[in-house]
Design a protein around this nucleic acid. Structure first.
Lengths: 219, 219
DNA sequence: GTCTATATTAGGATAGAC
DNA sequence: GTCTATCCTAATATAGAC
């Protein structure tokens, strides 16, 4: 299958950006970036090594001088995505560790949404293509994902325990809050009407409402 | 790539069920169902005709006696998924057309969540694999999707206009509500702790909270 | 590090017998 | 309707020259 240059797109067309420090210099890094764009658009199975090499402007054999296999390229991207997610959520949790549940939830949701606005391609690939990895290669990312889920669950549970939050079910509430952020890459791009800050702020408000910690002004 | 029989799964393992009337009798229908299971797990590009035929228990050439191409099989599934979604949302909208925004939103969100609990594989494939279709073959489903989005937007806008709802932004609120339902197939299966009814009820409550129409009991 | 050339396998699809 | 056999293309990956 060729790279679909057609609608509907799985993700908005944006530059394939990786977090600072996560892009190796030279050809090795360019391969990662072009693979990221193609995996986001057509998926791992729908993207060939030849197509990646063509996007980079190198011969189809050259990627193997930098990465052992196509799956290794995906594994590197999935790892980077999960590491960045974990780093941001851990920072948010640590920074607000002494605050109340509402402040901690706000910080977590903001961080979660912002990684999806700042690295939409990476977040999409890390979420949607991890299933193409073998269990061994997916395991480290899954462990980070589990920790990230724990951050959110802990805050919601604590808020309920303190009486600050009231939810019909903690798992369903956390899942719903997470789902809002995960879908952001499907529509967000820097050129549309909403700034990243605006998206983060509104989603934090939605999360507070879901847990019953924010009642909007009523007439 | 082989069919991954490993974790992490993209979707919970459930029987590939299609809506009543959407499954042709005989081999033609069995091909559709097995393709649905495989597309849900490995994606369209990650699933071969040979693998589908093997799952059905027929020769790799036989599918072509029933479907013109692999893409036609996906197109049929994507069409069925979107038609069922549209039918259920239209029914919910029509049934509650004279009620207030809160009742109409509840009906819409319940219908949206329930199609994702009742046909998790179909909903996932219709959402995640439509991008593998050519523009012409994706167009009818995209038109239905647009109408479905309109159902939700209309209710939220009307609720805001009447003063029943208060949201920072209508588009972001509708997107967040939609996102909650779309993620349901990633974890829902009939054997886990939550019944379909429970999931629908709680998500309807979350949606009401997102639009500011439901304040939980506070201590 | 990058190329040419190629080994090898898998995949989409068709022809034609039964 | 289903099968056997096959065509053709594209895919992953490697060997070896420069």
């Amino acid at each position: 299958m060729e790279r679909p240059g057609w609608e509907p797109r799985r993700v908005v067309a944006v530059e394939p950006v990786l977090p600072e420090g996560a892009t190796p210099p030279g050809t090795r890094g360019r391969i990662l970036r072009e693979a990221l764009a193609l995996f986001a658009e057509a998926g791992f199975a729908g993207t060939s090594i030849r197509r990646i090499a063509s996007a980079v402007g190198i011969n189809s054999a050259t990627p193997y001088a930098h990465h052992p296999s196509k799956e290794h390229v995906l594994a590197a991207l999935v790892a980077t995505g999960h590491e960045e997610l974990h780093a941001r959520l851990a920072e948010a949790a640590a920074r607000t560790g002494r605050d109340g549940p509402a402040e901690r939830l706000t910080a977590l949701v903001r961080a979660h949404v912002l990684i999806h606005t700042d690295f939409p391609l990476l977040a999409l690939v890390a979420d949607a293509e991890i299933h193409a990895l073998s269990p061994e290669r997916a395991a480290p990312a899954l462990a980070l994902r589990h920790t990230c889920r724990r951050f959110l669950l802990d805050v919601v549970e604590d808020g309920v325990a303190r009486g600050d939050f009231a939810v019909p079910d903690v798992l369903l509430a956390a899942g719903a809050i997470s789902a809002m952020g995960v879908r952001v890459p499907a529509w967000f791009d820097p050129d549309q009407a909403f700034t990243r800050e605006r998206v983060a702020r509104d989603h934090a408000e939605f999360a507070l409402r879901v847990v019953g910690a924010s009642a909007p002004p009523r007439s």
